[in-house]
Design a protein around this nucleic acid. Sequence first.
DNA 1: GTAGGGTTAG
Length: 654
Amino acid sequence: MAPLYGALRKLRSRNILQFPCISCCRSLASVTKSHKTPPLLYHANKKISHLIRIGRLSEARALFDSMNQRNTVTWNSMMSGYVHRREIAKARQLFDEMPQRDIVSWNLIISGYFSCRGSRYIEEGRKLFDEMQERDCVSWNTVISGYAKNGRMKEALKLFDAMPEPNVVSSNALITGFLLNGDVDSAVESFRRIPVRDSASFNALISGLVRNGELNVAAKILHECGEGDDGKDDLVAAYNTLIAGYGQKGMVEEARCLFDEIPDYQGEDGNKSERRFRRNVVSWNSMMMCYVKTGDIVSARELFDRMTERDTCTWNTMISGYVQVSDMEEASKLFIEMPSPDALSWNSIISGYSQNGDLGLAKDFFLRMPNKNLISWNSVIAGYEKNEDYNGAIELFSQMQLEGERPDRHTLSSVLSVCAGLVDLYLGKQIHQFITKIVLPDMPINNSLITMYSRCGAIADACIVFNEMKLYKDVITWNAMIGGYAFHGLGSEALELFKVMQRLKIHPTYITFISVLNACAHAGLVEEGRRQFSSMIKDYGIKPRIEHFASLVDILARQGQLQEALDVIKSMPFKPDKAVWGALLGGCRVHNKVEFAQLAAEALIRLEPESSAPYVLLYNMYANLGQWDDAERVRVLMEKNNVKKQTGYSWVDS
DNA sequence: GTAGGGTTAG
């Protein structure tokens, strides 16, 4: 008896056998039945399911239509193709047309309805379930998991209690459902109530806990897993999930501890050990990803080199690691070396070159890529936008639509930034219209809209978007609006909004303070500016960047406090850049402080010898003061340095 | 042919 019991346990843990239930007997019956199927029909059925598996649905349908003999399996296979594609109407049509239905037909159509979004479909699925004459445990599991996946736990639990024989699959579905709703306690309780847990029980619980940020609970459960768990010898997937979860939070050390806990058995001659709980390729990939996420490319590479078995994901992770640290040479080396690059590999390389400013290579790879997808288009469009080749971005955007690729929120967000860069309000409004037609504007999209409108001079439209966001705002939203006000010289509005933000206890970022300081400059508030500058450091622990110093210099210089501004420049821990000297020079012009102007202009000329602006400014100042000798000296210097005066241009589109 | 779950790109 004992060996038989052991064999049963082994089968169970491999998901071949579960709780005793009708479906097992039924599936055995259908196996024997398939032997009676005429060979031609049997092969045609196999062909249909193969075509569906590789995603060639229309070919499968053509074959289905051409068959002069079909059995229930034929109809069911065809139906499953539509169910997978969420084409529920077509699946339903087959269901209604088929001459004979078995339990699988019913289960299929019900699962189809439950995997469609919208309560309409769920009700229809439920109606069919209620109409069933005979149900097996798959029917129950389908409906329970259907409710759970849609977050409707009340109905799921009711059915769970009503089912004739509870089984581990439905319990697992409940766990997933609870965690989808963030109900950690109920999930853990359901888990504890399962008499014999399998590996999917652990996976469902651990992955849900990780998604809810409950890493400590997950680790505890994983370590206390006990006797009576069929899944306990196959916990590697759950370990992998938690490793990845730690990686997401940057907790590399915890991840490494877990990784080291998984045995790395390799039998003699490098053969894989019989033991099932051992590191697999996903464990290595996940651990590598942790290092990649924290920018520790050396440790990631170390693991990569130690791996005896690599899959596409391994290569892609390593490539994306090099992309992140801008080592495109190594990234493309791996890309060439890897056995069969997939869409993800191509896209990593494309976005890598895009982000690192090599648009030519990005487009080269993009054009050579065999099956471009939405992400490929988005990567290359974002690259053009980031590198300020706005017209190139727009060209790609229209090209993409000509080729039948539908833009999504990522595309549209990039295109909005393009409109902002081009200062093209007309185009921006068109894109806004387009957006409302095809996606629900979410936070990132709304944020891009605010930036676009304010950069294009339509501050009122920016306000409308901002106010429509009501409760759903993040720091970026606030930064965009405050920055918009500051950009338009509406200093007091910007400061007022900043106060509201502080009252709501939203933590500002360094970007917020760039806008706040700019607002102070525009509003002529010297004391307020100094106060905000030190509040940034003291109250919020934000280290001032050179942009903040530039703003502070701007604030002081505009008010004619040029000596104070110069003191700031001398005391700051950065080498003053164009913006800093530019701010000083701007103040000098307004207040006719020629001695400071000379200092600032000379510094600017050293930084950018080809720019005519500082020469012109200095020349005009001397001229205004009647110091014609000095003015002439500037003009000669300009000629000597071969600088041409550029014709002015306005950057505001009418 | 139907039910529960792990890693990578914009």
